[in-house]
């Protein structure tokens, strides 16, 4: 028998945590939000800064992935042109459920200053958006706060029930 020094009767008892399925699943989901690398314009620079060492997204469990099939959240960082609109829809459809979308910056929210023929006036015309971040461009702190709010939103859902798929129509 191995000799070990864990005293199960002291210091809070057994090394066992009791919880519900909902909480443990949501804990896993909310603390490993893998993001799709999707910098479309200058907001992408702030998104990259959030991922780099000073702001350090890794401590939230957010790791940028190059494939939509491995991603949980799509951070639309930048101006969405009408030519690119069909591709954002295709990438969103390739992500596995459950999936979330953060619309980062004025351009992704409403078209921003590009009130022109070639810019989609808000990414929510194409895909359902969970979180809108204001700013032009938002600071990395804003994106981190947004991710923390998204974690809160994920924890508020019931994980045991099949989540209703989000659809625009």
């Amino acid at each position: 028998m191995a000799q070990h020094k864990v005293n199960y009767t002291q210091n809070g008892g057994l090394p066992v945590a009791l919880t519900s399925i909902d909480k443990i699943v949501n804990w896993g989901r909310s603390n490993s939000i893998w993001a799709l690398t999707y910098g479309l314009a200058c907001c992408g620079i702030e998104m990259m800064a959030s991922g780099a060492s000073r702001y350090d997204f890794d401590r939230f469990g957010t790791i940028f992935r190059a494939s939509p099939r491995q991603a949980d959240v799509m951070i639309v960082a930048g101006t969405l042109t009408k030519k690119h609109a069909e591709f954002i829809k295709r990438l969103y459809d390739q992500m596995t459920e459950p999936r979330w979308v953060i619309s980062m910056g004025s351009c992704a929210n409403t078209g921003g200053m590009f009130n022109t023929y070639a810019t989609v006036q808000g990414v929510d015309r194409i895909i359902p958006v969970d979180l809108y971040l204001p700013g032009c461009a938002p600071r990395p702190e804003t994106l981190q706060y947004g991710v923390m709010l998204l974690q809160k939103k994920i924890r508020a859902n019931e994980a045991s029930r099949a989540q209703k798929a989000k659809r625009l129509m």
């Binding site: 009408k82 609109a85 829809k89 009130n115 023929y117 070639a118 989609v120 194409i126």
Partner: peptide
């Protein structure tokens, strides 16, 4: 701000 085709381009296409 685009003509009617431009305004509905992404909706029509997708």
């Amino acid at each position: 701000e685009g003509d009617e085709h431009a305004a509905w381009y992404e909706v029509d296409k997708i």
